[in-house]
Write a protein that binds this DNA or RNA. Sequence first.
RNA 1: GGCGCGAUACCCAAGUGGCUAAGGGGACGGUCUGCAAAACCGUUAUGCACGGGUUCGAAUCCCGUUCGCGCCUCCA
Length: 485
Amino acid sequence: MTTTLQVYNTFSGKKEPFVPLDPAHVKVYVCGPTVYDMAHIGHARSAVAFDVVVRYLRRRHKVTYARNYTDIDDKIIKRANELGQTPEQVSSRYIVEYLADMDALGCVRPTVEPKVSTHLPQIITMVGELVAKGNAYAAGGDVYYAVESFANYGKLAKRNLDDMQAGARVEPGEHKRNPMDFALWKGAKPGEPQWATPWGPGRPGWHIECSAMSREHLGVTFDIHGGGKDLTFPHHENEIAQSEAANGAQFARYWLHNGFVNIDDEKMSKSLGNFFTVREVLKAVDPQAIRWFLLSTHYRSPINFSDAALREAEQRVVYIYATLDRMQKAVSAMAGKGIAAGTLRDPSVADIITRFEQAMDDDFNTAKALGDVSEVFKLVNEILDKPSDPEMDARTLRVASQGLSSIAECLGIFGEDPQVVLGRIERRKQGEKGVDPAAVQALIDERLEARKTKNWKRADEIRDTLARMGIAIKDSATGTTWNVQ
RNA sequence: GGCGCGAUACCCAAGUGGCUAAGGGGACGGUCUGCAAAACCGUUAUGCACGGGUUCGAAUCCCGUUCGCGCCUCCA
């Protein structure tokens, strides 16, 4: 039995049942990055949040997931000029970098990744439609959207034109009739990319691309439009004005916006200079830990980024994978046991998928889901530490294992090979602390000799020495293992 | 100024009318261990910014106050 997915729709300001236009084919459009620099953690948050949204929707529907690249833009042109490269060289490089980061974070690739530069005909067509319908006007080589021509301008961001005009301003060189009008098309300037149009050469404004590209790939009306909270106004408001005026039909049906990543309770942003790139964070902490961190807070809430938070997330990831490792070994060793139906060590494991779906059905509550999942891992360790009836234990572990892998597939965490992840984290830490495994092993061997003769004093000295090197050791029946703390 | 969001323990964080306020980190106690570590168990909010109100019943709804944040200009 599945419950109904409820999603928070920015448009209505509340949670609503998610009813797709066509349940057999859900269509999602997410605003991607402007590719002029390396992605920062804020980009990662958006990508991971919508990655999970799409993965979850795919449990029940076929989904077309479109995420665009803004590859024609002031900042890209500026960057290209600084580097003595073409804008295309700059944008294509950062698209590669962006994808490398998002791949590392385990995000599935979108179904389509449209770029502005390959959709000029569609963009020019749509600008033409808006001019023809009287929603846009050419002025001084530019084309502007006339906000007053769209009756409900401000309906997404819940503002009205009168309130906004107080703070609006017109830059020199612009030819707006209303200060709130925005450029659909920018007249050509020397040294900038340009395309010929009926109203003169130039390049697209920022907002029109999403209207044109979503229509091209998803149709005039589609299910979900996502992006960061900061895009609500003006970007998404303008998309609505453009698309609904041009198409004469509803644009996106559900608007989902992710909260920001904060540093010391302030928005992480390029302009404040308080940002961390995904690339540098990836060097300091495991990608699975970044994902855990990002999913441990509800996607609409702000999340504070810090070293301590990341370390806690990684510690958690180590625990999860270490438990998974024990569990998988136990499950493969218990050949044939626990196949028959029967009692479970803890009946609640039978419901883990149901509980997961209840959490996710409540506006993709991954934080709740991770909390629930923690209880399952605890139970797994308890069973492994303190076995009782072998049949019942085996059955319980099988149920837990199956539930966890189903959840892992959706969250994109704890689905990797435990040995691979644990080894990756361990090697990174060894590198950070300059640990020489051979030297560590020599000390451990020496300690082993001391322990054989019950020379506890010497054994403890060696353990203290290792501790000072940042090495923690673990004695067990099968030998001594160690890892970097 | 306009619009919007938030305030839950030492820290992070779920919970939006009703059983004992999830989960994680930390701390402390215990099991295990030669001692540790890891894992597991227990303890750690009669309390949910503050003041009123609605209700049989409120962290949850309403009003006010304080504080914090975001958008209104490029921004995930």
